[in-house]
Design a protein around this nucleic acid. Structure first.
Lengths: 237, 237
DNA sequence: TCGCTTCCGTTAGAGCCTCTAACTTCAGAG
DNA sequence: CTCTGAAGTTAGAGGCTCTAACGGAAGCGA
């Protein structure tokens, strides 16, 4: 499960012969780039080397990517898309088992995705680079991808029992946050939103540290730590 | 609070005139390196540029550092040391206020440390690089630094009330983990260790995402999210 | 079918980087 | 006071990103 999906560019409308060839080599370049990232880390990512592997000279690749940063951005966008659809699918598939199991599915799937391709996880949640990260394209992809996951989580959390209480200041802040659709302001309890955010951060804490090898010498099974965290998330709240 | 401590090399035993000058320029180089990291990200770290700023030619710096990686390792070791002492001090200072407040102090101090110098936090917990990260020196520093924090946390958690129950398999695994001193195997309840680990991962999840700017457009105050997480950590357990 | 345009690839090269080799120079140990 | 070794120098190999200028070929309209 959770095997990497091949890179593919989104717009598939009017593809002339030329266009098709173009996106083909773009995808091929991205595939090689991911290989480089996987084996050598981000320092090993080199347009020159990719071109060589594609059988062309270095500068030729600049017909396909404006530069290193744009290639990187493309990889980031792809990764966000892939992670987003993977997670929302996993959550949807677990729907019959109820909200608790959906949360567990989310956590397990996310961990599996990250461990299967740590370089991609780090691309999204590791050290930002490319000068200053976050061109608009990446930001949009992030919002779309994570947004849909958040939406699913809000849905799940809403279906779990929860004592009602007057919202704290922080919760009020959340209820009218800009990433919540205007018309839902106030409709989703801040407590639900807070739980969603904390679930998200907790999962990243666990997975991030594991991906970075911080558990390597600690002699326990990170999967079990995740299970325990999931118990806690699902349990009392 | 939590302002960066200047880099300083550890051994202060027999410093001849020459040696002193040597460690001085080493420290100076590290200071400049941190500046570069802070402003340009890890791609901007350049021995050549450091040398220029020091008023010497590029190759001269190789008398002080075997290469880029060694400089990087030195920075990592320093950062581990600094973080470790900062956190243990904060926890110790809060001792009079009881275990709960100590946990809160830990979380707040860690966040402050990370936000005050994100590049250093990312050096430790962001994407590993330098070919393959983790030379022995860095590993040792990590163990020492994080180990002392863990120790403090174990101490805190042990002083908090907690229902006793037969340890799960995972907890048994933890009780005899290699990073626990031999003679304490079995003495520290696995449940305590699990809580310590989860506190650690939760804090990193929150702080890591914030440092990477993932909360930037979400319109809430991350400090309040941390407070809520701390409530949860301290609260029911 | 012809010709024009646009894209794709090339070489050349500037400017940055890391790192090695071989030299000078100078300070401090003996 | 000598002489060894550390700290600096220049030269240069080989890598990278990216720009400029040019040749060929594929697709397009007429």
């Amino acid at each position: 499960m959770t095997e990497p999906s091949p890179p593919q560019s989104s717009p598939r409308q009017p593809q002339s012969r030329r266009d098709r060839y173009r996106t083909e080599t773009r995808d091929e370049a991205k595939r090689i780039a991911l290989d480089q990232l996987a084996t050598g880390g981000q320092a090993a990512l080199s347009l020159n080397a990719i071109a060589r592997e594609l059988g062309m000279t270095g500068p030729a690749l600049y017909r396909y990517f404006a530069g290193r940063d744009e290639l990187l951005t493309a990889l980031i966008v792809d990764a966000y898309d892939d992670l987003g659809t993977t997670l929302t699918r996993a959550v949807a598939d677990a729907a019959p088992d109820g909200p608790d199991e959906q949360i567990r599915a989310l956590g397990r799937t996310m961990r599996a995705w990250a461990l299967a391709q740590p370089h991609r996880y780090l691309l999204l949640f590791g050290t930002p680079f490319s000068g200053y990260h976050a061109p608009d394209a990446a930001l949009e992809a992030a919002q779309a991808s994570i947004g849909s996951v958040m939406e699913a989580m809000v849905d799940i959390e809403s279906r779990r029992g929860r004592p009602v209480a007057p919202p704290s200041l922080f919760e009020q802040q959340l209820e009218r946050a800009p990433w919540i659709p205007e018309e839902l302001h106030g409709a989703i309890p801040g407590a639900v939103l807070a739980d969603v955010l904390l679930t998200w951060t907790r999962l990243h804490g666990l997975i991030g540290l594991e991906v970075n090898g911080q558990f390597a010498t600690m002699g326990f099974d990170p999967a079990l730590l995740l299970e325990r965290e999931l118990d806690d998330i699902v349990g009392p709240g």
